[in-house]
Every structure is written in C-alpha cells, then in structure tokens.
Design a protein around this nucleic acid. Sequence first.
DNA 1: TAGGCCATCTGGTCCT
DNA 2: AGGACCAGATGGCCTA
Length: 326
Amino acid sequence: MEEQASLESEEEQELRGSAEEMEPSAGGRGGGEEGLHRLEDDDEEEEEEDEEEEEEDGESKPKRRGPKKKKMTKARLQRFKMRRMKANARERNRMHGLNDALESLRKVVPCYSKTQKLSKIETLRLAKNYIWALSEILRSGKAPDLMSFVQALCKGLSQPTTNLVAGCLQLNPRTFLPEQTPELPPHLPQAGAAFPGHFSYQSPGLTAGLPSPPYGSMEPSHIFHQVKGQPYGPLEPFFDGVLVSDGPAFDPPLSPPLSVNGNFSSFKHEPVAPADFDKSFSFSMHYGGGAGGHAALYGGGSNPRSRIDLHFNTRHHKSVQICSAR
DNA sequence: TAGGCCATCTGGTCCT
DNA sequence: AGGACCAGATGGCCTA
C-alpha cells in the first residue's frame, strides 16, 4: 500500500492536494458539482493559497512529504475535473447496474410489488431465506410445512417486510387442514408435513444478531390474513391437488414462478419477461420452459419419483394444475 | 423531528 | 493509465 502510494504520479499527488482543499462535505447528491465549483473558485486564488500554505507548513502543520506540490494550472484542473466527472458517471452506471440486478432479484423472490418495493437489504435477506428454503425442499425431498416455509422466508426480516411477504403470499390458514388434501398422490407429502427437523423457526434476534422486534417476530397473526376471494394461497401447489388462482390481491406483477429442480445439471433457466409475471401468478413453480406451460417439481435428486408436474397457462395464469408423474 | 432508505460524490485500493 | 470496486460522507425524501 505504501509502495503504491509512493508510486503515485506527480500529478496524482497534485490532484490530491487540490482535492484535500475541498471541504469534506463536498459529497452528497449534487455535492460533487459544488465541490468542482469550489475547485474552480479556488483556482483563482491559487497562488495566494500556495504561499499561505507554505507559511503554515512552517509553523503548525507537519511538512508534506513527497514532491513539492505544483501549482494547479487550468489545464490540470480541467483534466482533474474531467477525470472526476467520468469516474462519477461510471460509478453512477455501476450503481444503476447494481440496482437493476437488485430489481431482478426482487422479481424472483416470493414477494414482489411494484408499488411497495422491498428495500435492498430486505430483498437480500428474503432472497437468502428463499434460497435456503428451496434447498431444504430439494435436500429433503419433501414439500414443506406451510408455516415453516413462511417462517423460513421471513426469518430476519423486519416486521413491515414480514407483513408484506405474508400479504403477498396470501396465505390461507385452511391450507393446513389435512382434509384439504385428500387427493394428494400418495408419494406427495401431506400438507403439514414439516420441514426437516432443523427447519423450525428460530428467533432472528438470536440467529441473525438482530433485535427481536421489529425483525421478524413470527407471530402467526403477523403472517396470515384472509384475503377475500382468495381461497387458495399461492403455496397451494405444495399442498393441494389442484389450484385455481384467479385474480390478484396484490400489485401486479407478483413474484415470478418458483423454479425448483432437484437435478441442477439439467436445470434450464430462461429469463421470463416481466410481462409474463402476471397478476395471479404469485407463487407457483415453473421450469425453465419460460413461457411454457409445464413445470415440474422434483422432490429432491435422491427421489426422482416424488415429482410434481405443474401445468399452467403462463399468459393468463388462470389455472395451475398439479398432477403426478411417475 | 428522528430514523430509515436511497442516490450521489469522493478518494483509496486493486486489477488489467 | 484507466477502470472496477468499495466504503465513507452527505443530503434529500418519506414516514411514523
């Protein structure tokens, strides 16, 4: 590091000298412009300042090391400003790219709302939970207990986000009733089949080093609410034989289909146009078929028999059907 | 008004 | 040398 510092070009040091003269508060939105303007203004008093600096150096400040600071000529100043502006533009683009990626992530996690966007940090947390929950499904080869699934998703999320996610999932307590799934194929886990033992929810305050409230306290009352006209929750495909999803209760488009495949080597994930993530398609499964109407959920690579095939109409997402495939 | 979230600028560091 | 990446600082906006 020091080595690199010593390798700095003369100009770099000059520029730094100039920059140091800028107020530290030059940052902030639009602040940079201010800083540059300041720089410009300073330029006019340049010689005077240099003399002053030398005097000060002799008395209070320790002497500046390295080559003596050269005067900031107009040309140098221009070059500095150009470099700074270019760097700012690049940084802006970079951050925009990052935000775009984050937006893409928002669309593939189980809760997506155009009007009520998850914050960046919450998006990342939810994505992490989502990935983990899906891995558990694949690992165990069992459909998760709905409650556990939601708890896993909301782990470590703030209370508002927890509510949002729960709302997006439009969970229906009736889903838990065993009589809801009398027609499940025998190889499919019954509703209420729990995630593997360690899947149980733990207080995020303990696991994530976060204070309990408001970070994802998991009172069921926070999670479940009945949405009128939405008799089936989006997780229904996990637990019921047939799902009819009709009409959105949340801002469209909701989350895209969930991609689950026990066989990662054959996993095909093609991007699905956001337009295809239609309103009612809140939480279902899809295969990389993209706009295709067929998806399958394997119950873990170790158990290719436990497979759920989903048939749906991706254009209108009016119906999702689960049938067994042996 | 405090706090959360965000965009932007900035300088340092590392990499190509 | 120039670009990418990163973290700190700052100020604006919004909400409880």
